[in-house]
Design a protein around this nucleic acid. Sequence first.
DNA 1: GCGCGCATGTAAAGCGTTACATGATTCG
DNA 2: CGAATCATGTAACGCTTTACATGCGCGC
Lengths: 188, 188
Amino acid sequence: MSLQHALLGLLTLQPSCGYELTKAFEDDIGRYAWQAGHTSIYPELNRLAGAGLVEVTHEGARGSRTYAATPEGRAELRRWLMEPPPQAKVRNEMVLRLFLISALDRDDALELLRGIADQTAESATELRRIRAENGPPTIGSPVGFGLLAAEFGLRQYEAVHGWAQWAIEQISAADQPAAAADSAPSAR
Amino acid sequence: MSLQHALLGLLTLQPSCGYELTKAFEDDIGRYAWQAGHTSIYPELNRLAGAGLVEVTHEGARGSRTYAATPEGRAELRRWLMEPPPQAKVRNEMVLRLFLISALDRDDALELLRGIADQTAESATELRRIRAENGPPTIGSPVGFGLLAAEFGLRQYEAVHGWAQWAIEQISAADQPAAAADSAPSAR
DNA sequence: GCGCGCATGTAAAGCGTTACATGATTCG
DNA sequence: CGAATCATGTAACGCTTTACATGCGCGC
């Protein structure tokens, strides 16, 4: 189970309470890497605390508990990261959709691919805008999670965009003898 | 649950028995999009058959049943693909590992990133070799699943490779004024 | 003081993986 | 005829999601 290590990583980067971790899983990490709800996170924090991998460093208002990774926790995270990954387990509904496009007929496939190309282009533009706003990576700072994630997301969108455009060309060329630059998105 | 639609898609592309579908989930689809074992697939095929979305078209040796998508099944697949995706659910251990690298100290992070950059470069080279062997996409053919998947995988590896190299540059430049191979990963 | 958001939890249902299990067929 | 592969299934366990539930604090 990777949730454990995700929490270890987040708590190594910054002490947080369960609620803050829950929100983190709704941002970058949830969008690109791993998702988890608070009902998974709280019990897991208790388990990790029981195992001595994290500890409560502060108790605040509304019964909030701020956790931080212990040295043992950071060691476990490092061990997990540095060991060769078994064979990455993937479950990505978006990619599944992309692949199954080949089961559609030509017109549907092209319509869908054009939609994907548009959306990924938009998302990439949005991320570039955000990056520009935040200015160049602060020199001397530790190159944090957010920066890595944003750049990853940008390149991911660009890759899918490029793939979609390639697929559109392939499918357009596949079985279309001479039909002019048709303006007919066709039926449907 | 997306397994249902994955099966619908595969059976639209080509009638197959459960065993063949199981193998398909060990190849491209399992590597990039969705994984499933035979213990999920067989019961799901029965459910789909009960719902009239697939049907047994042939019974062969060893009690094998060849399934194919019915018109209703293809309609359901199309409906699912064409409707706007809710918000793609992702669970990708590899990406999680990439993100958590920021929780490591500089030397570990660089070591890991170099490993990733090497591996992704290798995988990309391998896919390019396979593509070259298979020759150019057959003109006139429907641009199948395998071709889409291979190109996607290639672009995916290239994207991760580029990201890893970018990350290496960022981290190398981040906090290294002139300090030689400093042995002080700093406090934490 | 009232509403919204912070903060944490339990319980049940659904889904997937692992382990266990069985039998037929082909190939050497 | 024995081993590997084809082909399908059941059962238990574990993780995730969904639904249900509670209470405190801050801002208007």
